[in-house]
Simulated assay, not measured.
Amino acid sequence: MNKHFILSIDDKYEIKVNYFIESEVNHIFNTFDFFNIHKTERAFYFQLCKKNSQIVLGTIHFTEIASDVFKSPAKGTFGGFVIQENIDFNIYEQFIKNVDDYLWCIGARRIEVLMQPMCHNPSLFSVTYNIMIRLGYTVENHEINYNLVVDDICFPAKINHGNRKRLNKCLREGLIAKEIDYSVYEQAYSVILENRRRRGFMFSMNYEQILQMVNIFPEQIKLFGVFNQETIVCSSICVVISPLILYVYAWGDIDNMQNHSPITLLANYIYEYAQKKAFQLLDLGTSTILGEPNIGLMQFKKNLGCQESLKLSFSKNSKTMITNNQ
């Protein structure tokens, strides 16, 4: 059972645990709905609040993924700490420290935190890094993430010459990019799945899991595709991380489309969609696996106008805590 209780910080702030208060200070992977999908018997939803109030200033959740091993998030692209921008550094540090102390007190032998990419919030990333390192956490993994700033500049002006030629070829030959109707979601998923298999990569979610996300987050899961008449030749699954960030979770095209590169047309459509919806950042995900670079994928995203950003995961073992306390 996930009982609710309060951890006190001082006379002004407290941490409400498993109260599940609705908050605008969040991203999709730190919401209660996402936490609820993967929670186990030992799972905790921590919210920094003003004392005796329902005003949420910060959030993180942890789930036991193995015996006495707690992770944020249990599954998902990232979790980590989310905090209101005007919170004092010392209050934020106390929030992290108190959560950390509680998990050790209930017998944790390992804690893992998968942070959002630095580009999502450089200030939060920087202060969190400082606090976590001083609390004895180490960088478990480091990835290079790619993002595209969404502004008034049109997409063709951001990409390289080769991609502009591919984009124009797709348009000349009548390929059309659009948001995909629910009736063809399974076809769109199959295009991405087969693309991953051809390139020798795993796909972390099956179709039933995608549908579960669609049903729980109907306004935040978006599927887009490129059509050659009635045939889907390229598709993507995107996630609205927050009102400012749109994330391309996965995309791919059908076989034998190298001469057209419909991904470029799809990227153009997604970027224009992000402009219309007032997003500020288009996140195209990582191009490394366990830190090892995929050079071709990195160059592909650079040619789309992307910038690099760090994405880190932290971990700490119980022996680290013992050493630090000696």
Rank of each mutant, 00 (worst) to 15 (best):
W251S: 02
Y247N: 12
E194I: 08
G252T: 11
N36T: 01
L310K: 06
T288A: 09
Q280W: 14
K75H: 14
N90L: 15
C238G: 04
E24I: 10
D101H: 07
I65W: 05
R196T: 00
I245T: 04
S261H: 09
M298C: 04
H38Q: 13
D100K: 00
Q275N: 00
K222P: 07
N163C: 08
K71P: 02
N160T: 11
D11A: 08
D253Y: 02
V127S: 08
T320I: 11
Q116C: 07
L167K: 06
L211G: 05
F227H: 10
K319M: 06
N141G: 01
A108G: 02
V99W: 00
C306A: 13
S235W: 03
E208A: 10
E219K: 15
S287W: 02
I322F: 12
G79A: 13
N145Q: 12
G76C: 12
S204Y: 08
Y146Q: 10
Y207L: 00
A250L: 11
L304N: 02
T264D: 03
L310P: 00
K316Y: 13
Y273P: 05
F32D: 03
Q84R: 14
V240A: 14
M213E: 07
E14F: 03
V56H: 11
A267L: 11
H120M: 10
I153Q: 14
K302E: 06
V191E: 05
N90P: 13
V248I: 13
F78E: 09
F201K: 08
H161C: 05
S123G: 12
Q280A: 07
N195L: 12
N168Q: 12
